[in-house]
Simulated assay, not measured.
Amino acid sequence: MAVITFTSDFGYTDHYVAAVKASILSLQPQATIVDISHGIEPFNIPQAEYVIGAAFREFPEGTVHLVAVDTHGCKRGKYHAAKYRGHYFLMADNGLLSLITDGEPDVVVEIQADPELLPFPAKNLLAPAALFLAKGGDIDVLGERTTQFKQLMNRQLRLNDHSITGHVIHVDRYGNLITNITRDSVDTIAHGRTYTIHFGRETVGRVYPTYTQVDDGDCCCMYNSLGQLCIGINKGNAAELLGLGFDSQVDVRFYPGN
């Protein structure tokens, strides 16, 4: 049986996470359920997209990702099961699917929902569907195929010969600012040129391997394991100390010569 991951905005103080897991384990006690995060801020679709997008590829193909973020966010009460790059996803029709898949899932079905299940859809609708897929069930049994699901767009980089403009797409629990500027985009534009990185009132002229390469309290930039440019303060909270957060602009400027 495939692994089931579970991500939600339920937090850690209520019974909601346990109730969803119990609904799966009561049907299949041997089910493997892996928590990605339950600390997503309530209804925060961009945060959920980043956290799930950063993690799901680490799991084997066939993994089923149960996503209970903003589960009542759709007035139409639509819920989808989707397949993308060998993984399955179950979630409300709130735009998150389009962000995770860049609008191009391989298969999407609208899950047929009894209105009596909707007061707690993660437990009563999405969890049984996740178990069904994890046991090898055919996604088409869950509902009719559709191409109609809410579309949102990820932030796009602005690139020209002399600069890249990006934005902060996630702030982690350490206050590190993770941007949508990638190592590949910088290398593609740089062609060996020097560059500086600008954010808020700060300018940084070097990317370090880790934050510990600078003194405690100093600001620096590095690439994370996903190749994304990050801004942090060694032993400090960059978001608080720099006054930056989600969607803050970050620029990389290139200069002639080496």
Rank of each mutant, 00 (worst) to 15 (best):
A130H: 05
A48I: 08
F149T: 02
R183F: 12
H191P: 01
H65I: 04
V51K: 01
S248D: 10
G143L: 10
A129Y: 04
P128C: 09
G192A: 11
A48M: 10
K123Q: 15
K135C: 08
D9R: 02
H87T: 01
T71G: 03
S225F: 06
G95L: 10
A54S: 15
N224Q: 05
V250T: 10
L159T: 13
G39F: 09
S37N: 06
K123P: 10
I52S: 02
R183M: 14
R193P: 08
S248V: 12
E144W: 05
R57N: 09
I45E: 02
L66S: 00
H198Y: 13
Q47T: 07
L133N: 04
A238K: 08
H80A: 08
V168T: 05
R57P: 01
R253D: 12
Y211M: 11
F56N: 06
Q151K: 15
R183H: 14
L244K: 00
L117I: 13
N44T: 06
V69R: 05
E49S: 15
Q228Y: 13
D218F: 12
D70K: 11
M91N: 00
A55M: 06
D106L: 00
R183T: 11
Y174K: 03
M222Y: 15
G236K: 10
S37W: 08
H170L: 03
L157K: 04
F10D: 01
T196Q: 15
H167K: 11
D218V: 06
R158L: 08
F59D: 01
E116C: 06
V34H: 09
E116R: 13
Y211A: 13
P128N: 11
G11F: 01
Y255V: 11
E116D: 14
D93I: 00
R193Y: 06
A68I: 03
G175H: 09
L90K: 00
I100S: 07
G103C: 10
H80N: 12
A130L: 05
G243W: 14
P115R: 14
T196N: 15
A55F: 00
R57S: 12
L25I: 04
S185I: 13
N44M: 03
I189N: 00
L241I: 05
G175D: 12
H38N: 13
T13D: 10
K78E: 11
